[in-house]
Computed example of a mutant assay.
Amino acid sequence: MFAYIAKKLALLVLLLLGITFITFSIVKLLPGDPASGLIGQHADPEDIKRINHALGVDKPFITQFMGYVTLLAHGDLGRSYYTNRDVLTEIMRKLPNTIYLAAAAMSIAIVGGLALGFAAGLRKGSTADKLCSALSLTGLSLPVFWSGLVLIIVFSLKLRLLPPSGTGGARFVILPAVALSLPVLASIARITRSSAIETLSMPFVRVLRAKGMKTWRINYIHLLKSILIPLVTVIGLDFASFLNGAVLTETVFGWDGIGRFTVDGILKRDYPVILGCIITGTFIFVVVNTLVDLSYQLVDPRVRIVKR
Rank of each mutant, 00 (worst) to 15 (best):
F2D: 08
L9A: 11
V13T: 11
V13C: 11
I26P: 04
V27N: 09
V27W: 10
V27Q: 03
G32K: 05
P34A: 09
D44F: 13
G56F: 14
V57N: 06
P60N: 14
T63C: 02
T63V: 14
M66Y: 13
G67W: 14
V69C: 14
L71R: 15
G75I: 11
D76Q: 13
G78K: 02
Y82Q: 15
V87P: 02
T89G: 13
A102N: 02
S107H: 05
I108A: 08
A109K: 03
L116Y: 05
R123C: 00
D129T: 08
A134N: 08
G139K: 04
S141D: 12
P143A: 13
L149H: 09
I153F: 15
S156G: 04
K158D: 08
L159N: 08
L162T: 03
P163G: 06
P163M: 09
S165P: 06
S165N: 14
A177V: 10
V184C: 00
A189H: 10
S195G: 04
R206D: 14
L208V: 00
R209H: 14
K211Q: 11
G212L: 01
S226F: 09
P230N: 04
L243C: 00
V247E: 03
T249P: 01
V252C: 03
F261P: 00
D270K: 01
G276A: 08
G276R: 01
I279R: 01
T280M: 12
T280H: 06
G281F: 00
T282S: 14
L291D: 06
S295K: 01
Y296L: 04
R304F: 07
I305W: 00
I305Q: 06
V306M: 02
